[in-house]
Design a protein around this nucleic acid. Structure first.
Lengths: 354, 354
DNA sequence: ATGAAAGCGCTAACAC
DNA sequence: GTGTTAGCGCTTTCAT
C-alpha cells in the first residue's frame, strides 16, 4: 500500500503524475489507456511516477468523460423466511469476483417506491432500475428473478438498456437479450437416474404448481428419466407451493397415497418438508425413503443425514453472465445468446446412507 | 415510466431542463439542491420541466463536482460451504434498503489481488478497499467481518477512511470508529433462560475455541444465566471449530461425558452437528435433548423439528449502520459511537416439541 | 512520440 | 431570485 495520502491530503491527479514524470497530462493518460503509444523509457518513467504517488484515475472524472461507469446493477430480492436458503449469496459472490476480473463493480439496486393514489408507498423494482439508468449510474444490469415472469426484463428490453438475465425468457422465446440459466431438467434427470441406479422404481415427484415454468422444466427431467427406464409415473407427481407448512401436508398425503421409495423435489425447501414428515413418523431419510432436493443450499449441506441435492453451478453462471456483459458493453458488434449450464449432483445421506 | 429516451437519444441534461423551463441552468440546479432559493412559481415551472423530461442529475458529473459518490462499499466474503448459512444475505438486503432511503447505494467490493514474489496471486481485501478509495469511488465502507480480528478496520482507521463496522472492535477498546453489533451474550442468556424455564438443569455449552472473542462473548451469556440460577457449569462447556465434521465428534463425546439435558450452541452450524449425533443415535431433538442454535439461519427455520435459535436483528443493525454512515458523512461534527443490539429468540421444536 | 485545447454535466461563488 | 463564470479530473481530437 505504501503511500498514505491520509485525509485532508487530496488524492493525486493526472497533473501530479505528469509533473513528477516530467511529461504532460495527456501522456500520462496515454500511458494508462494506450501504453503502446509511448516510448518504452517514457512509459517506464510515467509508470514509476504512478506507483510512487499511488495514483489511480478518479472514477467520477473518467465516468463523466467516457460516459460509462463500469458499474453493473444487481437487484437483491428480499430474503424469504422459512425457506431453505436460496443460493443467491453464492451467485452474488461469484458475480462480484468475475466482474472484478473484468474491471466491473457490482452496484446493488434498491427497489424504488411509487406513491399510490392514497399516498401509500409501494416498492417498485422498475423504478429502482429507471433511476439508475436515468442518472447514468450503471452501464448494465444483471436481472435474476426472471422466473416470476416479471416485467423487469420486458421493461429493460423496451428501454434498450443493456442487461443480462440469469434465467431464461420462458414467456418469450423470441426475446433477443442475453441470458444464462441452469438446466433444471438435466438436474432432476441426474437426480432421478441416481435414484434408479440405486434400485428405486417408485420415484415420486414433489414440485410446484403448474404455473411455474421453472417447476415445469424441473419436472420434465424427472419424467423423462422415469420413462426412459420404463418406470410408470402414474400417480407419482405431486405439487405444492414452495413453503414449508403447505408442502408438509402435501408430502404427508403423497407418502400415504403414492407409497414411493424415493422422492425428487423441485427445491430444497420441498425436500425439507418431506424430511419433516419422515421425522414425525420416526422414519429415516436414506433408509426408509430416499430424498433429493434442488439448490444444494446450506440446509442441504448441514441437515442430518445430509440431503442429496442438485447443485447449480453458480460460479460458472457468474462467469457466463460477465462474459455476456463484456460482449454487450464491448466495442464490437455482439449477438446476445443464451447459455444453459448443467448442474451437478451433491450426493449425501438422504439417498446413500452411511 | 412515461418518457422513454431509448438508446441513442441522450439523457436530458440541466441545460435541457433550463431551456424548457425558460430559466438558466443554475436555477435548475438550485431547484434541485436548494429549492428554498426559488420563487414558488419558478420552482413549479422547473419541477414540471424536470418531470416532463424525466430528468435526473448525471451522477458522474455531480460526483466529480462535489467530490462525493454517494456510494458505500461493502465487502462480500466468500460463502462457506457445509455451514448453516450465515445471515449475511439478510443484512445485505436490509442495508441496501436502509441505504437507499438515505440516498446511498451499496457497491460490492471485490477482493484485490497482490502478486506474491513467486508470481501467485493472493486475494487481498485491503487492496480492494484501497483501490476504491484511491479512485474516489466510494464515500465510505461498511466492514462486516471484524470478528476475525482482521486488519481491515485498523487499516481503514489509519487511512482515515470513513467506515462503520458491523462488529465490535474487540481487540481495541480505544478504537474511535463507529460500530454496530449484536449482543451475543444477551442472546445466549435468552436461550439459556428459555431452557431453564422449561426445567432444564444440565444445560451444556458448545462453543468455539478460546481465541474467538465473539465465541467468548456468547459463552458468557450462557455462563451468567447458569450461575444466576445456581446451576453448576462444571464440565458442561465444550468447544470445537465452526465446521460440521469436527463439531460432530466433539458433540458426540460431550453427550456421552457431560450427559446434558440441553445444549446451547455458539452457532447454528454447531447445533446442526448436535442434531447429527442425535439422528445417528435415534434420539429426538426437543424430546431427548433440547438444542438451541445461534443465527436463526434458513437451516434453523427448515430443519425438522425446527431449531430454536437466537435471531440477530439484521434489519435494525442495517438501520443503525446507515445512521452512523449519515453522521460520518454529514456536514456536522459527529462523534462515532457503538451500538449494541439485543437479539430475540426464535423458539421451535428443538426445545418445545409440538 | 508527445503536447495543446476542448469539453463531458454539474455546482459553488459571486454578480446582478 | 436569477444569471454568469469557473472548474472538478479526465479523455479525445488534432497539431507538432
Amino acid at each position: 500500500m505504501g503511500i498514505d495520502p491520509g485525509q485532508g491530503t487530496l488524492p493525486p491527479t493526472l497533473a501530479d503524475v505528469a509533473e513528477r514524470a516530467g511529461v504532460s497530462r495527456q501522456t500520462v493518460s496515454n500511458a494508462i489507456n494506450n501504453p503502446s503509444l509511448l516510448r518504452a523509457d517514457t512509459l517506464d518513467r510515467v509508470r514509476r511516477a504512478i506507483v510512487d504517488l499511488g495514483y489511480l484515475p478518479n472514477r467520477a472524472a473518467r465516468n463523466l468523460r467516457t460516459g460509462t461507469s463500469r458499474l453493473v446493477g444487481l437487484r437483491v430480492p428480499p430474503v424469504p423466511e422459512s425457506t431453505a436458503n436460496s443460493t443467491m449469496d453464492r451467485f452474488v459472490h461469484a458475480l462480484v469476483e468475475a466482474s472484478g476480473l473484468a474491471g466491473y463493480h457490482v452496484l446493488l439496486v434498491a427497489d424504488g417506491y411509487t406513491e399510490a393514489a392514497d399516498g401509500t408507498r409501494m416498492p417498485d423494482p422498475i423504478k429502482g432500475y429507471d433511476d439508475l439508468l436515468r442518472s447514468t449510474a450503471v452501464d448494465a444490469f444483471v436481472v435474476t428473478d426472471t422466473y416470476l415472469g416479471n416485467p423487469q426484463t420486458t421493461w429493460l428490453a423496451e428501454r434498450r438498456a443493456p442487461f443480462v438475465a440469469f434465467g431464461r425468457p420462458w414467456d418469450d422465446p423470441a426475446a433477443r437479450h442475453a441470458w444464462v440459466d441452469v438446466d433444471g431438467a438435466a438436474g432432476t434427470r441426474l437426480a432421478t437416474e441416481h435414484l434408479m441406479d440405486r434400485g428405486h422404481q417408485r420415484v415420486a415427484w414433489l414440485g410446484w404448481p403448474a404455473g411455474s415454468r421453472i417447476g415445469q422444466d424441473r419436472r420434465t427431467g424427472w419424467e423423462r428419466a422415469m420413462l426412459a427406464r420404463r418406470c410408470d409415473t402414474g400417480g407419482l407427481a405431486w405439487t405444492t407451493e414452495d413453503s414449508l407448512e403447505p408442502a408438509r401436508r402435501v408430502a404427508a398425503t403423497m407418502l400415504d397415497v403414492a407409497r414411493p421409495s424415493a422422492v425428487v423435489c423441485a427445491s430444497d425447501t420441498l425436500a425439507m418438508a418431506v424430511l419433516h414428515v419422515l421425522a414425525e413418523r420416526g422414519l429415516r431419510p436414506g433408509h426408509d425413503l430416499a430424498v433429493v432436493g434442488f439448490d444444494d443450499s446450506a440446509t442441504a449441506q448441514t441437515v442430518p443425514p445430509g440431503l442429496t441435492s442438485v447443485r447449480p453451478p453458480m460460479d460458472r453462471a457468474a462467469v457466463a453472465v460477465v462474459d455476456a456483459l463484456r460482449g454487450l458493453l464491448g466495442a464490437e458488434q455482439f449477438t446476445p445468446t443464451g447459455v444453459l449450464l448443467t448442474p451437478t449432483l451433491s450426493v449425501r445421506g438422504s439417498t446413500v446412507p452411511s
